[in-house]
Nucleic acid binder design. Structure first.
Lengths: 350, 350
DNA sequence: AGGGAAAGCGGTAGCGCTCCCACGGCAACC
DNA sequence: GGTTGCCGTGGGAGCGCTACCGCTTTCCCT
């Protein structure tokens, strides 16, 4: 039933070496022989054993997909794109998530689980600490980062700083002067973290326009719940805020929720802009800096495969973002009063 | 650098057989020897080669995760849960998606890609045709279905029919008499498909209450876009509809969007209820029949591991669903007029 | 005290491939 | 016509483990 390469060789009247060459499309095999081998393999229903092939060749035709979660817009889409690109080249995708929960800070990444198991590693949306990157490097596999780089490594992602500046510029151009930022975790401080880059972009754009940023950055979880909490905290401290730039659409949606909790209208009372182009964004009328996550997955996987074959790849691929105005931003209701009366809105305080 | 089992054996002063036994926690090894071996392995940084182990043992410690997509709420959560459960037992998860796009009907599943590569297969949310199931069975691996069963196979999922009836009952209890259903693809007709089961539940509950169902089922894609399109189609044909049961939250969100497109209010003009308990549901105030997708992934993966060890598992695990009222359902505005004037709403036609 | 079972460990034959090397044959060159 | 060189193919040695079998040692039970 489970035929091996020797069965195929016997059936085709050739050696196992020739079967191997023929089936893998290697040169130095006559078209006639190749066809004969192929036919024999088909008839026997032969499928090569990946374990044996890996053991003999040292290659696994598998890449490791490292990601904190899969149930988030950006991650799910990158993974989907990457898997698709890998399958085309007959590569397998091993999934490694390692966030115990979204509430608890993750433990250190242990690269040993990948050893001898993959030909390359794709790190998805995970700003790794220098030591972790070094440990991964130690494995000796090609390494590509998506959505969160690492210095000196091949990276696919956005120009986070520029994206943030563009979002803030949009708000400032509308006339907003008190533009807050919903940022990532307070302990997410790696300079190459997208959250940090976006915060910096926000700050830079404000500075360039002479607008204040002090006390307007709120840290929190990178999800809906986090955005909601951050927004509430912000409104408690700064009821004069008229615009918010959230570091992700999911956080922005949380902000919308918080605003609704307090009876504040969007965009009449507060303008909100996020980053991602989340499918739900259209739903909620959320203005955003849209990116193509799935295509980033495809690109990153393709580059990784190139690297495995030894081909040169660019050190960095920057995906564009575009402002998609879906209505959650507008001119501030009252541009004259810079310091509004906290109870001036229609908010029936929560 | 890359040490093998013989290096460890030499370092520990034992045979490779003992190293293998010691490191895998097999019996018939003294505690002292085991410790010595472990220490030697640590010092050498020894990590066993999975390929060699698989080749020799015939087991891969890997399971295949078959799913049409990952970027959907249910799928992403199941996958995340399953991966987590597998990792605990030191199993790897191979991801196989095989929907080319959400628009095009998928091609047949080819089980050969899994041959000799996994110890078990987890099919996630994918109603397979009988021939496909048979082909998978042919592989001889334990098989578990999550979120979409197959007759005679181990299944983890909901009581879809009951869930649907509960949702419809909720709407009917509120006084609705024209309760439509946003269903799955028209060609999704497998009797064990969740979409079909839910449609049947909807129909059964209506029938039990003497309410009409004819002409009130709309087929479409199982996502936001599909729900939106379906809802528009429905409103074109049946402007008298006052309640909608969508087969998924994502479709329900699409319905909300369509209603907003037409200026219809929820729940004043139309009540909407979905299935899932999607994170965004709270956001949109979407009433739903909530389920725990992640836990279903955990359970399915655990059961699969049990099966691999030869342990008996229940043929079917049914997860509960609960009605979560978030405000998108209410009494119909006017219970007397059963056939409303199409322009009777506040809809400024789109 | 003797016998037998069981525990602890070593030796080693594969598992099913890939890859290196060797070899024959045929075309092309001087 | 002999030499060179390349192409197509076969032979066979691993790749790094696991699992079977068998040996020795201990320990218990009669």
């Amino acid at each position: 039933m489970a035929h091996g390469i020797v069965d195929v060789a016997r059936a085709a009247g050739v050696s196992t070496a020739t079967v191997s060459r023929a089936l893998r499309g290697l040169p130095n095999v006559t078209a006639a022989t190749r066809e004969r081998v192929r036919r024999a393999a088909d008839e026997l229903g032969y499928v090569p054993s990946p374990s044996a092939a890996s053991l003999a060749s040292g290659r696994t035709r598998t890449i490791g997909l490292i990601t904190p979660w899969v149930a988030h817009w950006f991650f799910a889409n990158v993974i989907e794109g990457a898997e698709r690109a890998l399958r085309v080249e007959d590569f397998d995708a091993l999934l490694y998530t390692f966030e115990v929960s979204r509430e608890v800070r993750r433990h250190r990444l242990d690269p040993d689980v990948l050893r001898r198991r993959v030909d390359g590693v794709l790190v998805v949306g995970l700003p790794l600490e220098a030591e972790e990157v070094a440990a991964l490097d130690q494995l000796g596999y090609p390494l590509v980062f998506v959505g969160a780089g690492a210095p000196g490594h091949v990276t696919v992602g956005l120009d986070d700083e520029r994206t943030a500046r563009r979002a803030v510029a949009h708000l400032a151009d509308l006339g907003h002067t008190v533009i807050a930022h919903l940022s990532g975790e307070p302990d997410d401080t790696l300079p190459w973290s997208p959250a940090v880059r976006r915060a910096e972009g926000w700050r830079a754009e404000l500075a360039a326009r002479g607008l204040p940023s002090a006390g307007l950055e709120v840290h929190g979880h990178f999800d809906v719940r986090g955005g909601r909490a951050s927004m509430h905290g912000l409104l408690d401290r700064r009821p004069d805020v008229t615009a918010v730039f959230a570091a992700s659409d999911e956080m922005a949606m949380g902000a919308l929720l918080a605003l609704r909790d307090r009876g504040l209208r969007v965009p009449e009372d507060v303008s909100v802009v996020g980053v991602d182009g989340h499918d739900m964004g259209e739903h909620l009328g959320l203005t955003t800096m849209a990116q193509n996550a799935q295509e980033q997955g495809v690109t990153a996987a393709s580059m990784l495969l190139e690297m495995i074959t030894g081909a040169p790849v660019p050190e960095e691929v920057v995906f564009p973002t575009s402002l998609v105005d879906r209505g959650s931003t507008a001119r501030p209701r009252d541009q004259i009063v810079t310091s509004r009366n906290p109870s001036g809105g229609c908010a029936p305080a929560m």
